[in-house]
């Protein structure tokens, strides 16, 4: 699971009001090279919740992202490289996503988060 996906997900357990952001428990993080696509990154920048994104990247062991970001930074190559790396090149291979309200763990195995709810959670 990459941080782009993490940034899109929340806990949707019945009754949970603030299921976002899910806390990352990282057991195995891998890095993979991904071709950079500026147009795509610009679009995703608009959609990303930055604070959750920075926290998530730290949980994955990456600390190079600025605490705050605005669209003027998109002119900087260095920023783009970091944003690209954190968004698409870090993979959570094994671990879990934890609901901030209930502490329920959504396991991540082989890079795939299992967001399916149990019978008593729907």
């Amino acid at each position: 699971m990459r941080l782009l996906t993490h940034n899109m997900l929340s806990s949707n357990i019945k009754g949970v009001v603030n299921g976002f952001p899910l806390r990352i428990e990282a057991e195995k993080v891998v890095e993979m090279n991904v071709e950079k696509n500026i147009e795509f990154l610009k679009k995703m920048f608009e959609k990303i919740d930055w604070k959750a994104f920075v926290d998530a990247s730290q949980a994955m062991g990456y600390t190079e992202l600025p605490k705050e970001a605005d669209s003027s930074m998109l002119n900087s190559d260095e920023f783009f490289n970091r944003f690209h790396h954190a968004l698409l090149e870090l993979h959570l291979e094994e671990g879990a996503l934890v609901c901030p309200e209930t502490g329920r763990r959504f396991p991540v195995n082989k890079g795939i988060p299992n967001m399916l709810l149990h019978e008593d959670e729907v």
Partner: peptide
Amino acid sequence: PVGLLRADNNLPAWRPSLKEV
């Protein structure tokens, strides 16, 4: 794929504030 996940189309797990992505 940039993301694969196990989820239910009937109860999607997208964060509520996310739209037009």
